[in-house]
Amino acid sequence: MSFELKSTHWPLLALALRSADTQRLMQDWQQRYGDAAGFFDQDALLLDFSALSDSEPALADLSALLALLRAAHLQPVAYRGGSAAVRQQAAAAGLARADDALDAVQALTASAASSAIEPTPTPAPERPAVGALLIDRPLRSGQQVYARGRDLIVTAMVNPGAEVVADGHIHIYAPLRGKAIAGACGDENACIFATCLEAELLSIAGTYRTSEVPLPPEVRSKAARVRLQRHNDAERLLIEAIA
């Protein structure tokens, strides 16, 4: 037999539409990602219509929206939810029906549905419930790992000049001496954990600290947790030793 048909699972990004106003969506998209060339890397995308009204007529500019997403290096491959008209339109555009897709963003879309009258300008950062990315090999100078849309666990050392990036939390069960960037898509609740904290750079949701300012002795080379703390509207990284 020259082939084998197997089932597989595949994490993909979901774009939850909070309004049927595709014109506005495209404007908001341009504003947020218009100049972020290279942000996406041919990631598969699910269009989630479940927050839209069940009696929605066909979307005015679906093909233009798809073209915009493709231009941003996303690959729309499936859709979920939506009125009969919208579903028919999506199927005609070549999208697969994915109503059974694992529901990591349900809570988000549900809350969006209740406030559908006032859509927020950008889709909030999402962390789908896929497993963490596990790396068992040392990361050496010049190497980079990005756990897109999930947590990152590294069981070996992260050396100076290496970079670990995750949209979720980062766990390093070895010396962390390179750069660690958690909450890369803006998740302010993301944390960085390391069993031996000697990082060159720590960043959570864009707030960072370099080793120019040495780590305090109570956490340097110790097991520690880094999180983002809001203090009088200012954000700073809080680094605590783990007992």
Partner: peptide, 13 residues
Amino acid sequence: VRDSDRILGMLSS
């Protein structure tokens, strides 16, 4: 040491 580290990364990839 930093450059050797970089080379070790390339040897393994």
